[in-house]
Nucleic acid binder design. Structure first.
Length: 148
DNA sequence: GCCAACGTTGGC
DNA sequence: GCCAACGTTGGC
């Protein structure tokens, strides 16, 4: 899961322990949260739009897909006037902090590791804020020395 | 700050 | 349903 640290960082998650992943307004990303993420699933927390983008920590899913209520809040930055009150368009999951990397697994490094070529985040022009990680990719990533 | 990539919108 | 215009994302 990608986040701009200026908006919400791994340290924010460390402080909060848990958070709802609200504000996603992209159908593909929504589908992953609504249909594929399951209780206990591992999550890699990625910082985007920063000097050194990359994976900075691990989290896990603590609540499966449910309606993102911010879509109905006119005061919210992600308000979606087209979403009917009784029929949610947007979904989110809850995640919980697991651990922080000792050092960032940088995007540059990710691009050099064999077996990660197909990861969404590694692809050029990738804009999906939520994307799946295969079991093989997870195995490679979770054993990197940056976890400490 | 630039710009490529790409999703969304809206006119036709 | 096409496609140009536009807006957003995000690496650099």
């Amino acid at each position: 899961m990608k986040s701009e640290p200026a908006a919400y960082s791994i340290n924010d998650l460390l402080r909060d322990k848990t958070t709802c992943w609200d504000g996603v307004r992209n159908y593909q990303a929504r589908n992953f949260m609504r249909d594929q993420m399951r209780l206990g699933d591992g999550v890699l927390f990625y910082h985007s739009n920063i000097l050194i983008p990359g994976i900075v920590g691990e989290a896990k899913v603590t609540r499966e897909g449910y309606p993102d209520y911010t879509a109905w809040d006119p005061e919210d930055r992600h308000y979606d006037p087209k979403t009917a009150p009784d029929r949610p368009t947007w979904f989110m999951v809850d995640i919980e902090f697991v651990r922080e990397c000792r050092s960032v697994i940088t995007l540059t490094q990710l691009k050099e590791i064999p077996g990660l070529e197909k990861m969404e985040v590694v692809k050029r022009g990738s804009r999906l804020s939520v994307s799946p990680v295969t079991a093989e990719e997870w195995k490679i990533l979770i054993h990197l020395p940056q976890w400490g």
